[in-house]
């Protein structure tokens, strides 16, 4: 088991490395001269040359890559040629905000989705099950920003219960933080809940067909007891997968919700930097997101081996 986890970590590191190469190459083929972007169109050729040297652009691609990746490993994301501010600090604070948002959203999503999906599966022939299933279908189809806008209309504009947007750090008062967090988290979580509940439903339906569930009933369990004791853990495996995938994608996906609620998260930062053509910053953000996604995959993989004994030996 240790061995298999070690192997997975190796694969993870390799994948991160390949991804970093792709990211670097993708963003160094950018048409246009970053030095020009930094200095503007009025810059003199001499100034441009000096700027290029300062940015390391006169070096070979390999050296540039090594510089960049070496910096990243040391925690240095470089200095933005556009704003002249260090990228790392901003990235970190934005990442923090988005992480809170995404994790809370995912928690809300799971709290809603798991019971909803199970009930929709178990009662799929009954009106309530069909209704739940239909609701989740609609939920998937509703864009999160629409959900956000509707929430704002109702709770911020009409009822005035909660702030319409913005972000409050915990040291500014926990109540305020929660108040600001509530609507965006709900907007994010509801739509995710719809997606995940579909997976819960289909995975519970699959498990309900399994022979071992029939065996469990043969031992003297009622159908619901058999499902709870023997089915749910088995059904959790695909749900774990999709939750991991969704979590990673939410890091950037949350951007629409951030935009609706005027929250300065990671996605918003990516948008700003992309609009300003601040490629070094974009590169850093992409690297962080991709690494995070791969890290989540790794955690999910390791969780698999914990849940499923068949996987413990399969790879050791």
């Amino acid at each position: 088991m240790i061995l298999s986890i070690g192997r997975r970590i190796g694969v993870f590191l390799l994948t991160v490395f390949v991804a970093s190469l792709i990211i670097f190459l993708l963003l160094s083929v950018v048409p246009g001269d970053p030095a020009q972007v930094a200095l503007g169109v009025t810059a003199t050729p001499e100034a441009l040359a000096a700027q290029r040297a300062a940015m390391g652009l006169d070096q070979s691609l390999l050296v540039q890559y090594l510089d960049w990746i070496g910096g990243l490993l040391a925690g240095d994301f470089g200095t933005s040629p556009v704003t002249n501010a260090p990228i790392g600090a901003e990235l970190l604070s934005r990442l923090g905000i988005t992480t809170v948002l995404v994790l809370c959203g995912m928690a809300v999503a799971l709290i809603i989705a798991v019971p909803l999906g199970v009930v929709a599966a178990v009662r799929r022939k009954r009106p309530d099950g069909v209704l739940l299933s239909a609701l989740s279908q609609v939920g998937i189809a509703v864009p999160a920003f629409l959900a956000g806008l509707l929430l704002i209309t109702v709770f911020a504009v009409q009822l005035r219960w909660l702030p319409a947007g913005g972000w409050a750090r915990p040291d500014e008062g926990l109540g305020s933080t929660l108040a600001h967090l509530l609507l965006p988290v709900v907007a994010l979580g509801f739509v995710q809940a719809a997606v995940i509940s579909r997976y819960v439903r289909s995975s519970v339906l699959d498990v309900m067909q399994e022979d071992y569930l029939r065996t469990a009933r043969g031992k003297g369990f009622t159908a619901p007891e058999a499902l709870v004791r023997h089915g749910l853990r088995n059904a959790a495996i695909p749900v774990l997968t999709i939750s991991g995938v969704q979590l990673g994608h939410m890091l950037i996906g949350a951007v629409v919700v951030e935009k609706v609620f005027v929250i300065n998260g990671l996605g918003s930062m990516l948008l700003e930097k992309a609009a300003n053509r601040d490629m070094l910053a974009v590169q850093g953000i992409v690297m962080v997101v991709v690494t995070a996604v791969l890290l989540i995959n790794l955690v999910v993989d390791v969780l698999y081996t914990v849940v499923d004994p068949r996987l413990r030996e399969a790879s050791s």
């Binding site: 399994e210 022979d211 071992y212 469990a216 003297g220 853990r233």
Partner: peptide, 17 residues
């Protein structure tokens, strides 16, 4: 307890976890 059953397919009759 009173009546038990053994099914055909032993490969899938047991909970794998």
């Amino acid at each position: 307890r009173i009546a038990s059953i053994v099914f055909q397919e032993p490969m899938t009759a047991l909970n794998p976890l």
